[in-house]
Design a protein around this nucleic acid. Sequence first.
DNA 1: CACAATTAAATTGTGCACAACTGAATGACG
DNA 2: CGTCATTCAGTTGTGCACAATTTAATTGTG
Lengths: 163, 163
Amino acid sequence: MTTTPASAPAQDDDFLRLDQQICFSLNAAARAFGGLYRVVLKDLGLTYPQYLVMLVLWEHGGLPVKKVGEHLRLDSGTLSPLLKRLETAGLVRRERSARDERSVTVELTDEGAALRERALRVPRRIAAATGFELAEIEDLRSRLDRLTGTLDAAALEETPACE
Amino acid sequence: MTTTPASAPAQDDDFLRLDQQICFSLNAAARAFGGLYRVVLKDLGLTYPQYLVMLVLWEHGGLPVKKVGEHLRLDSGTLSPLLKRLETAGLVRRERSARDERSVTVELTDEGAALRERALRVPRRIAAATGFELAEIEDLRSRLDRLTGTLDAAALEETPACE
DNA sequence: CACAATTAAATTGTGCACAACTGAATGACG
DNA sequence: CGTCATTCAGTTGTGCACAATTTAATTGTG
């Protein structure tokens, strides 16, 4: 069928195909969401990751970079340049914490806080575009979260430094 | 609760939270898969997107860049540099098609074809790490594919140029 | 045949994710 | 008190995704 002779049992080929489809479907769905958010967030001037940061700040107010990263599973390598762009856009302000000079607190500017009003219509448009019932979304979400937890644990076990 | 007073009804806040969780859960799961594949694919010297390209070539043999992109939903802007890296690694060869000089055919080298043997063990390790039954994976996959289709259609409708 | 429209690949530019590293500040412990 | 490990943010480098543009080849149409 392919380049290899009969050395590999059919099961391996089946797995190969299946395995592609799980993670690939996941990636495809994430990228499809990205395309939709790109359109919807365009007039807010935000990318999807920037929107996520704003969601965290709208919900929790000023936070250290570290805490923002914990909410979004992102490290400073991703957040530092992203926050710099949000700062350039006038949506946030970054200040070294007085009590711990290592920490930088991210605060909303007035403009950043005001943007929330315009963002309120976003979720409805996204939810409508999925064509899913709320219950089905909830179900999907819980499966995905369980999957993420299992995968994280598995990646740790597979890492050389674990033994 | 947050920075805004009672001007926004509670529903909007709920949506805001929910909306984050659907796409966010999706992204988180995709990134968790990425972390696992990074570990598992390390000794093959492939990234996950490169692995996907190799899967397509192992299954279909030599293909034009366009066809590879159709299988993976990727355009030449992503594939060109990726294929260049695979070529540098000695796994593929790119040749201008004789019958259509616009098209470039991607072929496996002997080394690229041989790598398939070592890749056969990958899917089992990934599948095991998910901790999901095959049926549950299938179910999840079909939901995600349906979601992707709906989202793609919605993004088209939302695009200004659609009317 | 000529010429406009289309197609394929590559390039450019922006932004994200992540590993690895740097530098500064803090905290723990002898 | 001094030293050493840890923590936090930032930087660097690699690779991916995607929009927009470029270049060349092909196709369609008059």
